[in-house]
Computed example of a mutant assay.
Amino acid sequence: MCIKTLGLIQLKASHTSKNICAEIKSILTDFSISRKQVYTITTDNGRNMIKAVELLNNDSEDEEEVAEDLDDDGLLKDLKIYSIRSIKCAAHTLQLAVKDFFQRHEYASFINKARKIVTLLRTPAYRYLITEESLPQPILDVATRWNSTYSMLSQLKNFEDFCERRLKCLMKLTTTEWDDLKRLVTTLEPAYTATIKLQSVELFMGDFYKLSASLKGKLAS
């Protein structure tokens, strides 16, 4: 498999499906690539991206070629000569599912409390104490970074004893909450591993189906 980057552009206009479609067509034109040569386009799940692919299909560049191929009875009139298939990024789709899981009320409030503790641990005073005890620096999650919430919670597990000794009572997790944290990390680990594998340079359809079946099995158990 040979991967080439044809364009990496800054879209200064509004990120509408129409503008995105125009940029794609411009890049294809620059490299003399016909839309008949494009079989699939992989995007995230944004409606503007999906709509842009639809516009590429609807805006035919080959009307004259199609007309030449029509017989006297117009038998090919309703035949779609080419069609670009929209493929949704599997890793992005998985992250949306994980995000929906986080937004469930019982998890949202708990994760928010854990996030506040991590934010406190990242202040200068606590960072000094953490360094003194040779602990890794805590990780704060970022909304747009895949797996960052898992990484934050997984790292926080290492601070159970530290938090019990150093934090004030109001900021501590209870014994039950620490147990919940460990269970949550265990539950999210298959999704974390799957996301890493889905970002491999070479991932074939067979690899994807194997990974999907494995993930479903682990989550079901």
Rank of each mutant, 00 (worst) to 15 (best):
L156Y: 02
Q95F: 05
L140I: 07
E23F: 05
M152E: 10
A220E: 14
M152F: 08
L198S: 03
G46E: 02
S17Y: 01
L94E: 08
L167Q: 01
P136Q: 03
F204E: 15
E202W: 14
E132A: 11
Y39C: 10
Q10H: 14
R166W: 06
K25C: 10
A213H: 13
V38C: 05
G7H: 02
R183D: 10
K113T: 07
L188T: 06
I20Q: 08
A52S: 11
K172L: 10
R122I: 02
K172F: 12
T195A: 05
P124F: 05
D30C: 12
F102I: 08
Y39N: 11
K36M: 10
I81D: 06
M171G: 10
L211K: 02
K218M: 12
H92K: 00
F208Y: 15
L56E: 00
I9Y: 15
L6A: 06
F208T: 06
L11V: 08
S26V: 04
N48E: 08
I50D: 08
E106G: 02
S17C: 07
D141K: 04
V38S: 02
K12P: 03
C2R: 15
I33Q: 05
S154I: 00
A125K: 12
L76S: 07
M205S: 13
L198P: 04
K12I: 08
N57K: 02
F101S: 06
D180G: 11
V98W: 02
A108L: 09
F159Q: 00
K12N: 15
L76F: 03
T187S: 15
K99N: 11
K25Q: 13
T144Y: 00
E160C: 07
A213M: 12
N45H: 10
D161W: 11
P138N: 02
L70A: 12
T29C: 13
E189P: 04
L8I: 08
Y150S: 01
Q103R: 09
E177H: 06
I87Y: 14
K116F: 07
Q37I: 01
D73E: 13
I111K: 01
S148L: 02
L76R: 09
D78L: 11
N58M: 09
L28A: 10
A125D: 10
Q10K: 14
M49F: 06
E132W: 03
C21T: 04
V53T: 05
S26I: 03
L181T: 01
I117V: 11
T119C: 10
